[in-house]
Design a protein around this nucleic acid. Sequence first.
DNA 1: CTTATCCATAAGTTTTACTTATATAACCTT
DNA 2: AAGGTTATATAAGTAAAACTTATGGATAAG
Lengths: 314, 314
Amino acid sequence: MDKRLRFISHLRCFESAARFQSYSQAARELSVTQAAVSQQIRNLEQQLGVKLFSRQGRNMLLTQQGQTLAEYVRQAFSTLSSGFDKIMVEPEDGVLTVTASLSFSSVWLVPRLWKFSSQYPNISVRAVASAQLEDLRYSDIDVAVRQADEIKADVHQEVLIVDPVYPYCSPNLVEEMDLHSPEKLADCWLVEAIDPGRFSWKTWFDTAGVKMQRELISWIEVTTWEMGLNAVMSGHGVCLASASMASELVNKGLLVRPFDIPIEPGLKFTLLYDKESPKLARINIFAEWLKTELTQGDSSPISVARPTEHNLRP
Amino acid sequence: MDKRLRFISHLRCFESAARFQSYSQAARELSVTQAAVSQQIRNLEQQLGVKLFSRQGRNMLLTQQGQTLAEYVRQAFSTLSSGFDKIMVEPEDGVLTVTASLSFSSVWLVPRLWKFSSQYPNISVRAVASAQLEDLRYSDIDVAVRQADEIKADVHQEVLIVDPVYPYCSPNLVEEMDLHSPEKLADCWLVEAIDPGRFSWKTWFDTAGVKMQRELISWIEVTTWEMGLNAVMSGHGVCLASASMASELVNKGLLVRPFDIPIEPGLKFTLLYDKESPKLARINIFAEWLKTELTQGDSSPISVARPTEHNLRP
DNA sequence: CTTATCCATAAGTTTTACTTATATAACCTT
DNA sequence: AAGGTTATATAAGTAAAACTTATGGATAAG
């Protein structure tokens, strides 16, 4: 056993710092402080008796010897990763833990899980609702589905669909309020998220070419898409929602889309998982099913206003 | 950065245990306790979620997955060792620290270092005398020369010579005591080490075919070969010493070998160094010089009794 | 010149890796 | 069968390593 392998744990810091040429960035990657990285590398240099980095202002450049070692370390780490991959593969069958927002979980995912289960009876899906993205690398959660324009996470990301966002309300309200033009919406209660971002009623009215006077409208504020949908389903105003999320309710005749005017680009649905997960086989099956289900789920609305001339849709 | 590399330091225990199929032997190799190895491997198995060993009575057999991982780890470690080798090579020039027994250091090595230095002026040798073999892997000592039949050490060993052991005394004593037959030695003071092992006067007399009566002989006990040589050099009796150690003194006419009857196999001189030392180039130069010097140093004695018929020498 | 960013270092804190002690099982010898 | 030896497993305790926090110095950019 090579005695120099006693310092093997230091090599993680070394390899990361070598790649970034920066201790701070290495520290971020490894989720430790800069000082920890600095000390580990100093320690490694002392033990090996070799100077691996030379400081150039704020950059840590590799010495010739540092470059040589970095190459070998990279190769060794790659070999180890391959070894781990080889022994850590789980079969397709088994449990899969999926996390998504409360809205998506309750409105979309959970109502459809029976479909997945009947198609893949040997895969058991456990749904976990969470407001934030959960850790996918170091926790026991395997897959996440999130709705956001950009997700900062150090895992694999895959856009499933970009879901247009339309107004939705109960069928009764369409008749009751005679909703045949976008302007008429100003007479209704409008349901809006506390922090809607791009998916605000203002954005929609702009898209529809209608001038909105916020102070003349009655507002209902909600914290989740689900709450919005639940509100309008019982006749309380009109809300904005993505087509997929509303599709089940529309299919059941509980909601209609009064105007076929979307906010686009719509709501991005992203699938996230750890590329190094031993459950990759299982995750891939779920991902395919999810993608299919999301794209097929956008069926035509039962009742909808015709497009105006400046907003033609195929 | 592969998150599974967090467990990289556990892989030392794993690889050793895999090779030995024994935690105890791994523990010995790594200089830790069996319990430490057991816990590290249990930890690794838990973290990876993979069973790596299965117990068969007193053996720890690798599972299929354990075997697979062991192969990858071996390969990765080999790559790292190569990397270390590549960056840790020192040039031929520089300092070399040599350890040897007090006797060899003072009687043989130090008096000859000027020869090495003039031949290799860019290599500076530092001689360290020690009663025991020093640690060559984790200390700053590069090379050891020891005299012993068997040396237990986890480093590279190379027999330099097997040096015959003869009686030596001052030239005056040969005349004074008329030492023309081995039997005459019983009338002299005999110098012997406290724990001579194979190199006792009894062994020599047996070799010479002379019956020794210990209680009729006057004894001087010494702790080192050097002390013995110093004693007889000043006329105090006869001591046993290896040819090389005595050669300088013989050449200078300070000692003679009264009888050309050796104890053989003689005293084994072994060179030891760490095969992974960055100073290998330097060590090899020193080793070659040492070997040459030791074999050339066994010159003929100035005054010696002729061999008897049952102890002919070429 | 000021501000921001980066690494180096010392001191303190937390976590990991180790040791010791003991239990259990397997193996060997008489 | 009994007794002794050898091997690993585990719990509790200890020591060492790895980390954090705080601070200083250097550099780069505005």
